[in-house]
Amino acid sequence: MFKKRIAILAACVVVLATILAGCGSKSGTTSGTSGKSAFKAGMVTDTGGVNDKSFNQSSWEGLQSFAKDNQLKVGTDVKYLQSTQASDYSPNLNQLVHQNYNVVFGIGFLMQNDVQNVAEQNPNAKLGIIDAVAVGKDNKPLKNVASMTFKEEQGSFLVGVVAGMMTKTNQVGFIGGVNSALIKKFENGFKAGVKAVNPKASIDVQYAGAFNAPDKGQAIASTMYTKGADIIYAAAGDTGNGVFTEAKDRTKNGKKVWVIGVDKDQYAQGLPQNVTLTSMVKRVDKAIYDVATKAKAGKFPGGQVLMYGLKENGVGIAPTTKNLPQKVLDSVNSYKQKIIDGSIKVPTTDQEYQTYLSNLK
Rank of each mutant, 00 (worst) to 15 (best):
P199H: 10
T226D: 11
L310E: 13
D263L: 02
K68Q: 14
T84L: 14
G35F: 07
G32Y: 07
W60F: 15
V275L: 05
F174G: 00
T33A: 03
N179F: 01
V97I: 14
S27Q: 07
L20S: 14
I130D: 04
K137Y: 08
Y89C: 05
G217A: 01
A181F: 03
E153V: 00
L182I: 05
V103T: 07
Q116R: 08
V133L: 10
K286Y: 14
S334H: 13
V346A: 02
V14S: 04
L110Y: 11
N117Q: 14
G298I: 10
P214Q: 11
S222C: 02
N139W: 07
G298H: 10
G24H: 10
G176Q: 00
L277Q: 06
G303M: 12
R250M: 14
T276I: 11
V103R: 06
S25D: 02
A201T: 15
Q337G: 11
G314S: 06
N113G: 09
F300V: 09
E152I: 00
K4H: 12
T320H: 11
K282C: 04
N253E: 12
K36C: 07
V259T: 08
V78S: 06
L158N: 09
I340T: 08
P199D: 12
L306S: 10
K195Y: 10
V159T: 15
G48K: 01
K68A: 15
G298C: 10
D131K: 01
K252H: 06
A134K: 13
I175E: 03
Q64Y: 09
L306Q: 13
P325K: 09
S334K: 15
G254S: 09
V162K: 03
Q304A: 14
Y267E: 09
V104M: 13
I288P: 05
D52P: 09
F186Y: 13
S279F: 03
G261P: 11
G28A: 10
Q99T: 04
K151Y: 14
K3A: 08
Y356V: 04
I203W: 00
G128H: 13
K151Q: 15
V161T: 12
R250H: 10
N122C: 05
G228Y: 13
S343E: 14
N70W: 15
G240Y: 10
A287T: 05
G303W: 13
I8Q: 01
T76A: 13
V262G: 04
C12H: 00
I19Y: 13
V315E: 03
M111S: 01
F174N: 00
C12Q: 02
H98E: 14
V281M: 02
S65K: 14
T149I: 15
V162E: 09
S37K: 15
L93C: 06
G228P: 12
N56G: 01
F2H: 08
V315N: 02
A11L: 15
Q266G: 02
T320L: 09
D249E: 12
D263C: 03
Y225D: 06
Y233I: 00
N122E: 06
D88L: 10
V118N: 03
L16H: 03
D131N: 07
D249I: 07
K151S: 13
Y353P: 01
G303S: 12
G28Y: 11
